[in-house]
């Protein structure tokens, strides 16, 4: 029987050539998205006014909420955190099936970016919650499941730092990445199963207006490109560090 050859990811290949252009394009798109959020997308309605007022030829019937502008970055960074976690779990499975350390490196780098984007989601969400609801934290279903996700991701790195044996460390890390992955659909679907006023289901409530959707899309593509660029740069650095260690070992021998 012919054994199927496993393709192992390596730094210095064609995706690395795209890393810096992707980062630059991501920076441009997110900047454009930022400008669109404030100059193009209309503010959302707050509390109803006692007396409607004509402003610039438009009848305004509600207070105009500017705090919602945080949404244009909050949602895309949350989606990117899920995507990076899916990659981490995928490489975790590849490690468990092949026992190839390179897949563990890929999984670790993807998990590092997951943590970064989870922190972004938490910070932007908390600042929004603080203004809208007057509290820094509320035990709402989406927030709780996302906090669990963040704790699992932190546990992943705590565990990695506490085990010296690379094989055992990679095995445990892969399992934790899979546990974290299980939380992704729960986190995503929880507001559909347990309705919440803090995290509305946008599609169920009539969807976004075209200006809002366009702004979210631009920021989403920008953040995806930033994440891709960062992943490739960080993977290249991790691979170089591994080769450096191998060279040091060679010199010591």
């Amino acid at each position: 029987m012919v054994e199927k050859k496993v393709r192992i990811p390596e730094a210095g290949q064609w995706p690395d050539k795209l890393a810096l252009p992707a980062l630059a394009a991501g920076a441009v798109l997110t900047t454009v998205g930022f400008l669109m959020a404030f100059l193009f997308a209309a503010p959302v309605n707050g509390a109803a006014l006692d007396t409607p007022e004509l402003v610039n030829g438009v009848m305004v019937t509600h207070q105009q909420l500017i705090s919602q502008k945080i949404f244009y970055f909050h949602m895309p960074v949350a989606i990117v955190s899920f995507v990076m976690l899916i990659f981490s779990a995928y490489y975790g499975i590849r490690f468990l099936t092949t026992r190839e350390q390179r897949f563990d490196t890929c999984s670790r780098v993807a998990m590092e970016l997951t943590l970064l984007f989870v922190i972004f989601t938490m910070v932007t969400g908390d600042l929004w919650t603080r203004f809208e609801w007057g509290v820094w934290w509320t035990w709402e279903p989406r927030l709780t499941t996302y906090l669990i996700l963040m704790l699992i991701v932190i546990a992943y790195f705590v565990m990695r730092n506490s085990i010296d044996d690379p094989e055992r460390r990679a095995t445990y890390a892969s399992v934790i990445s899979l546990i974290a992955f299980v939380d992704v659909p729960i986190c995503f679907m929880i507001t559909r199963l347990i309705p919440s006023s803090v995290h509305p289901v946008i599609a169920r409530e009539g969807g976004m207006t075209p200006d809002m959707a366009a702004t979210v899309l631009v920021v989403m593509i920008g953040m995806m490109l930033v994440a891709f660029g960062l992943y490739r740069l960080r993977f290249r650095e991790a691979r170089l560090a591994e080769r450096l260690q191998a060279l040091k070992d060679q010199l010591e021998d």
């Binding site: 402003v55 909420l65 945080i70 970055f73 600042l127």
Partner: peptide, 15 residues
């Protein structure tokens, strides 16, 4: 209409 704009600004800028 614009009552929440100024109070929310520090949170948006910080985010």
């Amino acid at each position: 209409i614009y009552a929440t704009v100024i109070p929310s600004a520090p949170f948006i800028i910080a985010a």
